[in-house]
Amino acid sequence: MFETVAQQLIIGLTNGMVFALVALGYTMVYGILEFINFAHGDVFMLSAFFALTLVGVIDVGQFHGPMLAVLLCGIVIASAGFGAVVNLSIDRLVYRPLRKSPKLAPLVSAIGVSFLLQNIGLIWGALPLAVFGGGGQPAAPKSFPQLLPSDNLLGAGSGLTLQIKDVLVIGASLAVMTALYLLVTRTKLGKAMRATAQDPQAARLMGIDTDQVVAATFLVGGGLAGFAAVIYALYINTVYYQMGYQNGLYAFTAAVVGGIGNIPGAVLGGLLLGLVRAFSDQFIGAQWQPAVLFGILIVILVFRPAGLLGSTAREKV
C-alpha cells in the first residue's frame, strides 16, 4: 500500500509539473487581459509536434551520453522558442485587433484559433516522416521515442520506480518556475506585468507600454507551453493532435483551482490536479478521470470562485 501511494505521488508530481507549466500561460494572460486563451493548449500541442519533427529530422535516437543531453537541451530551447513565437503571432494577428471589443469577441476568436491549430496539427501529422508513421494516418497518436534511459534509480529490485525522467521533469520544471518567479518579482518587465494586471489604465498613465507587456506575456506563456510540451512528450511518449484540448482544459482547471491570475496559484493548482489525477486513476479508474477533475473544477468554482489562493476579485464594471 505504501509503495502504491508513493508511486502515485511521483506520477502525480511529474504530471502536476506539466499542468502547472501550461496553467501558468493561462493564468498570466488571464491576469492581464481577463480573457481565457482557449488556444493555449493547442500551442502546447503544436510545440510537441515541433519537437517530434526535430527528433525525427535530426534522428536523435542514434546519439548517447553528453551528445544526447546537448541535443535534448537544444530541442527544449527550440520548442520553447517555437511555442513563444506561435503564441505571440496569434496575439498579434487575432487577439490584438479585438482588444477594445466586448469580451465575447476574443473568446470566440480563441475557440476559432484552437480549431485552426488542431487542424494544423492534424495536417502536420500527415507529413511523410518516419516518426509520424509515414504520415498515412494523421489522426493517429504518434509515439515519441523513448530517449531517456528508463533505469530505476532506486535499484532494479525496488518496488518503487523512480526514473531519470521523473527527476528531470521535476527538476527542470522547478528551475523554469524559479526563473519565472524571478522574472515577475525582480525585473522591470515583471513589475510592468504586475502593474498592468492590477490596472491597465493606471499602468499606461505611469508610462508603461501595456501593448508590449501583453506581447511579453504571450511570449513567456508560449515559451512555457513549448517547454512543457517537450517535457510531456519525453515523459508520456505519445503526441496526438487533440492532446492540447484535454491537457489545456486540465491546465486551465489547475489555474482556476489555484485562483486565476495568481502565479503561485497556478503552480499549486497544477500540482494538486496532477496528484488528484494520479490517485483517481489508481483508485477510481482512468476512465473516470475527466469526471473527477471537472467535478472538482465545478465544486471549486461554486464554493470558492476565486480559487485557493486568489482574492475575491470583483468583476470590473
Binding site: K103, T253, Q289, A291, F294
Partner: peptide, 18 residues
C-alpha cells in the same frame, strides 16, 4: 461571472459525457 460560467458549462459537459 461570465467566463467562469463558460468553464463550468464545459466542465459539466465533460462530466456528463464521461
Amino acid at each position: 461571472r461570465g467566463d467562469y460560467l463558460a468553464i463550468v458549462t464545459i466542465g459539466f459537459g465533460e462530466v456528463l459525457r464521461t
